[in-house]
Nucleic acid binder design. Structure first.
Length: 347
DNA sequence: CGTGTTTGACCGGCGC
DNA sequence: GCGCCGGTCAAACACG
């Protein structure tokens, strides 16, 4: 139960697109994920060492590093889950999800906006009585500016080099600044999920604090900035609505959580890798097409596991969710519009 | 009171 | 150097 309208719950229908591109200015995400394994987009670029930079939208060539938002958010936190995936992707459950997705797609057609939003929100919202809470307002997990960036830079400089004359100090200041900048510029890999949803902020099991909102150029829809409220977890995400397809929400995650999701904890350490067996919204479950062989490559920092992570327990059974209303929108042109700087021209 | 949102200001990178 | 723009800060505010 977030005050001030926080959280908001999930939307009625969801659909993502997986896409990767290199770092650059602008909104780029390293990955864009498509929840529908049958039509997911995924392009590799050599920069990250995943694949060979092929730029094709052919489904059978797609090798999404993450099969779902959940995969991305949680897949690397749970060693058992990872092992589970690496060993066997649970074909039965996998097939189940696939089946559900297919059914959803087939039976609901595209009616994007429906009154099911509220219903879906209720369903997709993993109950807000999460156990994790924090008053961490400014993300202790990552360096923050004391007051503003300049103040912090100066503090750092003062702390590091002190017995230098003013000139050297200035030089070191510049050097340090550029150094820090360089380090700071080193962004975490980002993964974008395109989701058909009525609500902007999709529930993903984690708790987020909104720390900013900006108007997006050439778009009537603003972009919201969220930060994970868990201390020591510097994961951020941006949420914006596609101006081209207003029913599509673009959620870009940056970084990896260093903790389990409150939702999973609430569910008794549910296997977030176990599609259909936990309380997570279906749109966050991993569809088929999982590529365990890519796990190592797709994750630049596999050491994100918490050593003290409690072993997963059997999840409490949750009532089967109603079918989602999903849409196919794997439109290359749309992707180009969404990520013009990174999408090649349609071959 | 705790938690989360809103919003204007600010910072820093980049292109011209 | 300047302006643009994405990203962030933080005080004020809202809500249960």
């Amino acid at each position: 139960m977030s005050s001030g309208g926080g959280g908001g719950g999930g939307g009625g229908d969801h659909h993502g697109v997986y896409y990767q591109h290199g770092h650059g200015r602008g909104d780029g995400a390293d990955y864009v994920f498509n929840n529908n394994d049958m039509e997911s987009f995924f392009f590799n670029q050599p920069a990250l060492g995943v694949g060979g930079g092929s730029r094709t939208g052919a489904a059978d060539e797609l090798m999404p590093p993450y099969n779902s938002i959940t995969d991305y958010l949680q897949g690397f936190l749970d060693p058992s889950g990872l092992a589970r995936h690496l060993d066997a992707p649970c074909p039965a459950e996998d097939a189940q999800v696939k089946h559900e997705l297919s059914l959803d797609v087939m039976s609901h057609d595209s009616q994007g906006t429906s009154g099911a939003a509220g219903e879906g929100a209720a369903l997709l919202t993993p109950n807000s009585s999460v156990s994790l809470s924090s008053s961490d307002r400014e993300g202790e997990g990552q360096p923050r500016r004391c007051k503003k960036g300049r103040a912090k830079a100066e503090d750092e400089v003062a702390a590091e080099g002190d017995e230098k004359d003013q000139e050297d100090r200035e030089n070191s200041t510049k050097a340090n600044k550029s150094k820090k900048k360089a380090e700071k510029r080193k962004r975490q890999p980002r993964v974008a999920f395109l989701t058909k949803s009525e609500v902007d902020h999709l529930e993903d099991g984690y708790r987020w604090r909104k720390y900013g909102q900006k108007a997006v150029k050439n778009s009537p829809y603003p972009r919201s900035y969220y930060r994970c409220t868990t201390p020591k977890c510097g994961v951020k995400k941006r949420v914006e609505r596609s101006y081209q397809d207003p029913s599509t929400v673009i959620t870009t995650y940056e970084g990896q959580h260093t903790h389990h999701s409150p939702a999973s904890l609430r569910a008794g350490g549910a296997h977030l890798f176990m599609p259909g067996a936990h309380g997570l919204p279906p749109h966050l479950m991993a569809p088929s097409g999982f590529r365990p062989d890519l796990m190592g490559m797709m994750h630049p920092n596999p050491n994100m596991f918490l050593p003290s992570m409690p072993p997963p327990q059997m999840p409490t059974p949750s009532p089967p969710p109603p079918p989602l209303q999903q849409h196919h929108f794997t439109d290359y042109a749309l992707l180009q519009d969404l990520f013009p700087s990174t999408m090649p021209n349609n071959p």
